[in-house]
Simulated scan of single mutants.
Amino acid sequence: MLELSVLWWTVTIVLIVGLLAFDLIFAAARPHAVGFKEAVGWSVFYILIAVAFGLAFMWYAGADFGAQYFAGYIVEKSLSVDNLFVFVIIMTTFAVPEAHQHKVLTFGIIIALILRAIFIVVGAALLDLFAVMFLLFGLLLIFTAIQLFRHRDQDPDVQENGLVKLTRKVIPVTTEYDGGRLFTRIDGKKLATPLFIVLIAIGSTDLLFALDSIPAVFGVTAEPYIVFVANAFALLGLRALFFLVKGLLDRLVYLSTGLAIILAFIGVKLVLHWAHGIWPGVPTVSTNASLVVIVVVLAITTVASLIKTKNDPSAKAHPGSLRANPHSDEHSSPRPS
């Protein structure tokens, strides 16, 4: 059982909130198109912070909890790359100006953190009260992995997002952007801009990813604190990572397959953990073994993807979908909402 002092909790919360505030202020103060060098710098910065925190946490709490943090961070980081695919689709579909993509991503990360914090609290409480939740979470991840693998060559239909469609019905939306504003006035009438719809699309996407990522990280650690910080540090680097790899995402053609394997593996791990509590003879999977499997799968996936796209330049990656999309093969020019 992980026991942390009030000081450690305070430092953690101040660090995460401070980084979020800095990111948000930076995005609002300097709206601009983020270049490659800037994206590299920010990506390295956030990765170094995550690693430094992990090493400090390992020193404070011990090697086992430290390994759980790094395993959880790698799981969340790999899932966040798939999240980036969907962000690229959303930005393209709604033709978000490059100068305001920074702001949209920062708000999207804040929404994701809030949603995941809620899911972590609920998930931890359920796991503490009902051991069978390990079985249910495991089966959910296995089902998700199967669906993702089945539809690994498809893209989600952002325009058909239920929350986006409902928002359009309830709130009048303009056809043009008004700088970085979420709302504008035309002839004295207050209207939402396409940027507001983009935030709705990203927020609902975050909700769906939270449903997968929280059970996944609970598969490598049962400690709510580790689940939260692993999510937080993975998401904090998401904005910079978006600008760094958005031009390279098309080359990761086997990413969805790799993520499906990882989700299935963690799902089986959770089922074995549940079964071990009832039948002690059932084997379990250690955190170190999980870390090795995850890293190996991601390495193979990345190398195989690069080899595939080098030999077949026409091959294009897709984020995958959890359900069949009849419009996945249709390619229309990007248009603002």
Rank of each mutant, 00 (worst) to 15 (best):
A112I: 04
D312K: 05
P334A: 03
P224R: 01
G277P: 13
L24Y: 08
G188K: 04
T184R: 05
P215H: 03
L115K: 01
F149P: 00
G247R: 11
F137C: 13
D23N: 13
D157N: 13
W59D: 13
F65I: 14
L191A: 09
V245D: 00
V17I: 15
V271S: 01
F87D: 00
V122M: 02
L141V: 04
F196W: 11
F137D: 00
F149R: 01
P194Y: 10
A234T: 05
I120R: 01
H276R: 10
P172R: 12
D178H: 06
M1S: 14
L208Y: 15
F45E: 00
M58S: 14
I266S: 02
L141H: 05
F57L: 13
D153G: 03
V282E: 10
G247L: 12
S332D: 15
I202G: 12
W59H: 11
G123L: 06
T284Q: 13
V245F: 00
E98C: 04
R116P: 08
F265C: 06
I110W: 01
S43H: 01
F87I: 12
R185E: 14
V121D: 00
L79A: 08
V170C: 11
A324Q: 12
F228Y: 14
I226Y: 01
D157I: 00
V245H: 00
A192F: 04
D157T: 03
D329G: 15
W42E: 04
P280V: 13
F218L: 04
P194V: 06
Q147N: 15
A232F: 01
A234F: 00
A56M: 11
V170P: 08
I197K: 03
F209Y: 15
L238Q: 10
S337Y: 10
K310I: 07
P172T: 02
A99Q: 07
K310W: 14
M91C: 12
L105A: 14
F134E: 09
I16C: 10
I25K: 12
H331E: 11
A27M: 10
I74P: 03
H327Q: 05
T193Q: 04
I262L: 03
L306W: 09
F130S: 10
M1I: 07
V44I: 15
R168C: 12
A240M: 07
L55C: 10
A275E: 10
I49C: 06
I109M: 15
G18T: 04
N311I: 07
A95D: 04
F209W: 06
G258Q: 11
E330V: 14
I110H: 06
V292R: 14
I261A: 09
P97Y: 01
Y46I: 07
S213P: 01
G62M: 07
H273F: 10
